[in-house]
Amino acid sequence: MGAINRRQAFLLGGGFVALTVLPMAANAEPSNDAAELIKKFTGGKEATKGKITFDLPEIAENGNTVPLALTVESPMTAENYVKEVLFVADGNPNAGVATLMFTPMSGKAEASIRIRLAQTQNVIAVAKMSDGSLFTERKTVKVTIGGCGG
C-alpha cells in the first residue's frame, strides 16, 4: 500500500465536491505511439473493421488488472488462419500491450490476457491473416481511478 501520495490525497479530498458530469476524454487524439505501432504492424495498409471480437469490461474496476478476451473469426486451417494480433492502448504512457501469434495448431484464434490501463481510453486490435489481409476493432474502457482503490 505505501504512504498515501499527494495526488491520492488531492483526489480523495476533491472527490467529495467533484459531482459535475463531464464528457469523457476517450476520443481525444492518441497521446502516445499507438498510430506508429499500428503503422509498423500493417505496413501502412488499411485494416478493415470486422472479424475481431474482444471482450473488455465497459468499466474496469481497477486499471491495473483488466481482463481482455479475444476471438477472431477464422477457420484456422493451414491455408487460412490468423497469424498475429496486435493490441495497443491509446491512452497509456506507451501504446504497446501485446502481440499474439497464432498457428493452425492453435485450433481457434482465441486468447485471454490481463492488461493495464492508466486511464479511460481506447484499446485497438489489428489482426493479420495468413493471406496478408488486415482487420481491426476498437473498444473504449472507462477506468476507475481515485478513492480507496487508488
Binding site: G96, A98, M101, T103, R116
Partner: peptide
C-alpha cells in the same frame, strides 16, 4: 501459440 508482451500486461 506465442506472444510478445509489453509493460501494459
Amino acid at each position: 501459440f506465442s506472444c510478445a508482451l509489453e509493460p501494459a500486461i
